[in-house]
Nucleic acid binder design. Sequence first.
DNA 1: GAGAGTGTTGTAAC
DNA 2: GGTTACAACACTCT
Length: 286
Amino acid sequence: MPELPEVETVRLQLKHKVVGKTIDSVEVFHGKSVENNPEIEDKLSGKTIGDIDRVGKLMIFSFKKEPDLFLLAHLKMTGQFFYVDMSGVVGGGHSMTEADMDLPMKHTRVGYHFTDHTSLYFNDMRLFGYNKLANAEEVAIAKKKFGPEPIYEDFDADWFYEKLKKRKTPVKAALLDQSFIAGLGNIYVDEALWRAKVSPMRRADKVTKKEAAALAAASGDVMKESIAVGGTTFQHFKDTGGENGNFTDYLQVFGQQGKKCSRCGTEIKKTRCAGRGTHYCPKCQK
DNA sequence: GAGAGTGTTGTAAC
DNA sequence: GGTTACAACACTCT
């Protein structure tokens, strides 16, 4: 479910809620979510969360006075973090009723209980995501697998263009490759391509320098704008307080098949490209 | 009820 | 190395 803006939304919220808190106990409801590594309970009990970092869609928790201990959390398709205190789920100034949110629930996989009686729950219906322990070396290796992120000012559009020229796949497939550029998933790729007026099916090596610059800018913009409103909710995204993201209202092509392109009025089409459902305007994206 | 589709990514195979 | 197909899993929609 989540792409970079959703992961970033969760990271920022968690940073405010759990940094500085000490883990009292860890409850593993499903071994697969912690890579069948039961020692996570012993390793994390008594540790205080120092910071939460992120590379691409991977979250990295670090701990105070533990320079060689990290917790890597990947949400994959359906992972969610929910923060709870004794009076119920709290987030974004709203309090969820018990009927809305009763944790732990059916798809709760891991629970982190803090010494101040608050808890953080990891939910993951499809079990693709994980929470796993890592040392400093493993974190460094994991970080190396990600390309630069278009949301940063120093993203190099010229480098981006040169790299695209070496790829013969549809440009959409290249943009989804996290080792090339990190952060774009299926939703934002479609949105960025629409903004840059480039067809998802265009061969990457046929993208012009001007278009590459537009794509780089559009990729960064669409994700930054989404972060600003708390991410996109399609089916499975909720923030740490159980709230939906608001970017859904701004989607121009994703899930908009059958509707008219807001730019030229042509009907938005859905097809399959790079093995994924793909939405585009056949008229203004060339 | 059967079958297809779902926001991710690692792996195996060519 | 680049690319593609598929698997991991559980649920919803047709």
